[in-house]
């Protein structure tokens, strides 16, 4: 059973690597003339995901958030974040951040043991902060850029260059190797809890956005750049969007172009 699943996943992994590398060779969307060449397909996926979210996932997550004590939600968030953290540890090392990698590995060990299998984040107060690293950021550090913006059904926003991260995070998550009756409820709680944690963000988006698709795309891509630069993007270029504000604004912007 497990082998069949792994076999299937290896195929997905290979497809994703090919997709990721091909798109990784393309110019990153934030600097290309066309910000979103896959827009028609992406919009279709977005619409599919949105419908599923509006009619199923969001109502379930809202009910869950209403009836679940904050302490329990925090514990579950810590637990699932900790399970996913091996991917962060690996990518910290792959990016050559040895000190950060050691800190991340120690964080994982402490939270998994004295943190009661990850339910309590004991590491942050000990000076071992949580980092956000993934395989897309690693590829970027190796000179392979993010690639095109993509929206995948059931997954959401991503970039071509980050798609192999779906595979690394899958294989490095201990949940992948859980079988039997626990797998389904655990995965379901993970998904619902994650969606519940995003309720505030999506409510802000719904409140602010006049075109939620472009809003989500721009926010996602800017956030990716922010993560790639470890929350310290170079200040040069910050005000490029104001270049020639006498009427030719944004012509040289590296952040966004409207063609």
């Amino acid at each position: 059973m497990l082998l069949t699943r792994l076999n299937h996943l290896i195929k997905i992994f290979l497809i994703l690597i090919c997709f990721g590398l091909v798109s990784g060779c393309a110019t990153t969307q934030t600097t290309a003339g066309d910000p979103d060449p896959l827009e028609p397909v992406n919009r279709a996926s977005y619409s599919f995901n949105d419908t599923l979210d509006v009619y199923l996932l969001k109502p379930v997550a809202e009910t869950y958030a209403e009836y679940t004590p904050e302490l329990v939600r925090d514990g579950l968030t810590n637990f699932f974040d900790n399970l996913a953290y091996l991917n962060v540890v690996l990518n910290s090392f792959l990016q050559g951040k040895i000190d950060q990698g050691l800190s991340d590995a120690t964080r994982f060990i402490f939270n998994s043991t004295i943190g009661l299998a990850g339910l309590v984040d004991v590491a942050t107060p000990m000076g071992l902060p949580e980092h956000e690293e993934d395989f897309g950021q690693t590829l970027e550090a190796w000179g392979i850029n993010e690639g095109l913006y993509v929206v995948l059904p059931l997954h959401g926003s991503d970039t071509g260059g980050n798609l192999p991260n779906l595979a690394t995070s899958f294989f490095l998550n201990p949940l992948t190797y859980v079988t039997g009756v626990v797998l389904f409820p655990l995965s379901a709680v993970n998904i619902i809890n994650k969606r519940a944690n995003l309720l505030e963000a999506t409510n802000i988006r719904d409140e602010a956005a006049v075109d939620p698709y472009s809003f989500t795309r721009e926010a996602y891509l800017q956030r990716r750049q922010y993560l790639i630069y470890d929350s310290n993007p170079p200040v040069e270029g910050y005000d490029d969007i104001f270049e020639g504000e006498d009427g030719t604004a944004g012509e040289e912007s590296g952040v966004l172009k409207i063609e």
């Binding site: 602010a208 075109d211 809003f215 721009e218 800017q222 922010y226 969007i241 944004g250």
Partner: peptide, 15 residues
């Protein structure tokens, strides 16, 4: 947190 409100609005309003 790295997200520029102005760029979001520019993209949306253009659409």
């Amino acid at each position: 947190d790295g997200v520029n409100d102005l760029s979001l609005k520019r993209a949306e309003y253009a659409v």
